[in-house]
């Protein structure tokens, strides 16, 4: 080494002039009040889905009131109908609370299934590449190119309208879009050096997928899970609305809107309440997702004059 003479001097200076820390400050996930509001509403409905049947004033199928389409806060011998009654003289509030379990539960299970299928195949296709990827992608394109509600109609009509079939249908349809996202994410991550570093180390496929790719895809996939859940809620509600989803007497928000639609003509809000329930849940999820992803961009745009 040529710097023998200066090296002692340098050691001293090193303490004074450390290499400057140029790493960006750690980003923490912090929600704005809008996001917190979303979390509160979603949490409320999740709690309702879990304990709803125990706290609802009436059973979902109880035909108890004296009349249909009673306005809010009507009272009779059975009690008070805080949101009024529906076309079959049932308590709307109770049905909405019961419906939370049906609507959210079914959607959640369907989305979860869609994710298990979509992520496994999508990441698998990205990692495997070649013919496997080619065949899976083309098949997926074909499913994606069928409008979801159309595909749902066909399957439900063919196989009937039981809850398991509804869940399978929704998960199959949405697995296709999850596949697309997971595959794209997987492909992006596969070309980053650390994946190549693992492969050139000799790591097997399982290590590469579980340790290198998945942890880096987790955050975007989690965000997308929220959006996908919203789509599934809307999809199942739409099917129910068309009379092809969840069958009576089970309460679910989509069919409640449909069943009470005629009440609108009499000035009853019976179909509005379940519609609001759907909207509050889906909007809240979107608010959370927006809040998480909003931080990533747009700041330079504020510098425009």
């Amino acid at each position: 080494m040529t710097d023998n003479i200066t090296s002692t001097g340098e050691e001293e200076e090193k303490t004074i002039y450390d290499e400057l820390h140029d790493a960006p400050p750690k980003k923490k996930l912090k929600l704005t009040w809008v996001g917190k509001l979303g979390v509160t509403v979603v949490a409320f409905w999740v709690v309702m889905a879990l304990i709803g049947p125990y706290i609802a004033p009436f059973h979902e199928a109880d035909i108890i009131a004296d009349d249909s389409y009673l306005p809010a806060f009507s009272t009779d011998s059975e009690g008070t109908y805080i949101l009024g009654t529906d076309y079959l003289e049932r308590d709307i509030l109770s049905r909405i609370i019961w419906g939370a379990r049906t609507t959210i539960g079914i959607s959640f299970v369907a989305t979860l299934l869609a994710y298990m299928m979509g992520v496994t195949l999508g990441i698998g296709a990205a990692v495997a590449g070649g013919w496997t990827d080619m065949i899976l992608s083309r098949a997926n394109d074909a499913i994606l190119s069928l409008p979801s509600i159309m595909l749902g109609l066909l399957i439900v009509v063919a196989l009937g309208t039981s809850i398991p079939i509804l869940i399978l249908t929704a998960s199959l349809i949405y697995a296709a879009s999850v596949f697309r996202i997971a595959r794209a994410l997987g492909q992006d991550i596969m070309v980053i050096d650390f994946v190549e570093a693992a492969r050139v180390r000799g790591e097997g496929l399982w290590w590469v997928i579980s340790r290198e790719v998945l942890p880096n895809a987790a955050m975007p996939l989690a965000t997308d899970f929220g959006l996908r859940l919203v789509f599934v809620v809307l999809f199942i509600s739409s099917l129910s609305f068309l009379g092809l989803g969840i069958q009576p007497p089970a309460a679910d928000w989509g069919s409640m809107v449909r069943q009470n639609l005629s009440g609108l003509g009499y000035g009853s809000y019976a179909s509005v309440w379940p519609a609001l329930a759907i909207a509050s849940f889906t909007i809240s999820i979107n608010l959370i997702v927006d809040d998480i992803s909003a931080k990533s961009g747009g700041s330079l745009a504020k510098k425009m004059i």
């Binding site: 989509g254 449909r258 519609a275 759907i278 999820i285």
Partner: peptide, 10 residues
């Protein structure tokens, strides 16, 4: 975030 039928109903 809301279904088409909700908007239509409104």
């Amino acid at each position: 975030s809301v279904p088409e039928f909700f908007i239509a109903t409104f």
